[in-house]
């Protein structure tokens, strides 16, 4: 069973939970930018929650299904159309054999996750099916989809198969806004900033620039940040925003030459020579991937304790989703495994 790509959309790629353990060699985690949305689509459909899906940015693809197949969407709102007929988001749909699935314009959010019964069955590379485009690794031939690609689909798990028309409970349907707050733990190299600049960074609106992708989100519109003038340390480079090349945490915010902050996301470059001034908390990383270009963001300074509280709330919400969709078993197993390793 397979899916033929008629039109690829703006930037559509195969993603799953991502690959861990290779960042020290420059291979980032990759995986769905909005992990919660990916999991909600899979769980709704009765897939394993980390089955590979299609991540569709801003403009969806047009796909022909060679055989009848159930699907579900998560994340951004783009009305799915089967042979031109509109259907709801966040609901299990059946695409008949030979039918074409397309999408309307994005109404809210930036990335839709398309789960198909059985998952997208590209080969695992370094433990994941996720696409890492810079490294030409994983996914479909290591790149975003192109017209003419034929995607293999895995064997559906008939035991957990969801009924057509099953809807994501309202509590888990995402609510998108036009203005967002992103919580940030300050630190790393923010001591290199002038104090006034550091404070203002958290008081102004920043808007998402057109250079916003899986590697990083760039922001504009705020007052440029000033770094304290200093004798550059040996090996760092001339600009006051330069450091001796170091690792970049996922979610870290760098400000090259002080002008435009960049949040690194799941396809991050793993290191480099620009000072980072803080890190977006893990609970807000899903949201970053749902912000459209030109939308506004306020960075909110939080403590590590607050970040950990938000992390706990995120984990509880994910667990509630599993319970609501009848797949809480997987997590109980994970917890048992975690305890066994401790």
């Amino acid at each position: 069973m397979s899916i033929e790509v008629i039109k690829p959309g703006l930037a559509t790629s195969v993603q799953d939970a991502g690959r861990a353990g290779h960042y020290h060699l420059g291979i980032p985690p990759s995986g769905a930018m909005d992990q919660f949305a990916m999991r909600s689509a899979n769980l709704l459909l009765g897939n394993a929650e980390d089955a590979a899906v299609l991540e569709c940015a801003l403009m969806g693809p047009e796909l022909r299904f060679t055989q009848a197949c159930r699907i579900a969407t998560g994340g951004a709102e783009m009305v799915p159309k089967i042979d031109g007929q509109a259907h709801p988001n966040f609901e299990v749909l059946e695409v008949p054999a030979g039918s074409v699935l397309s999408f309307d314009f994005v109404r809210a959010g930036a990335r839709l996750y398309l789960a198909v019964e059985g998952g997208i069955d590209v080969p695992e590379r370094l433990g994941s099916r996720s696409t890492y485009t810079l490294g030409a690794l994983g996914g479909y031939e290591g790149r975003p989809l192109k017209a003419g690609d034929v995607l293999p689909i895995g064997q559906p798990n008939t035991g957990t198969r969801a009924a057509v028309g099953r809807r994501l409970p309202e509590a888990f349907v995402p609510r998108f806004a036009k203005h967002y707050e992103l919580r940030v733990v300050p630190g790393l190299y923010d001591h290199l900033l002038e104090e006034e600049t550091r404070e203002r960074f958290y008081q102004e609106d920043w808007s998402v620039a057109s250079e916003a992708d899986r590697i990083g989100y760039r922001f504009k519109g705020g007052t440029p940040l000033r770094f304290i003038e200093r004798e550059p340390p040996f090996g760092a480079g001339d600009d006051p925003s330069n450091i001796v090349d170091a690792c970049y945490p996922i979610g870290s915010i760098q400000v090259p030459a002080g002008s435009e902050p960049i949040i690194l996301h799941r396809d991050a470059v793993s290191g480099g020579g620009y000072a980072m001034v803080g890190t977006v908390i893990s609970a807000d990383m899903d949201l970053v991937g749902q912000i459209q270009p030109h939308q506004k963001v306020r960075f909110v300074e939080v403590s590590l304790e607050q970040a950990l509280d938000a992390r706990k709330a995120y984990a509880e919400r994910l667990q509630a989703l599993r319970v609501a969709l009848g797949q809480a078993l997987g997590d109980a197993r994970d917890q048992a495994l975690g305890q066994a390793l401790d």
Binding site: P233, F234, A236, P249, G251, S252, R311
Partner: peptide
């Protein structure tokens, strides 16, 4: 030692390369 969000710890040993 600098906490980078809730999942990373960044440790600078020297500002200058040596």
């Amino acid at each position: 030692y600098s906490a980078a969000g809730d999942e990373f710890l960044f440790v600078e040993l020297s500002e200058a390369m040596n």
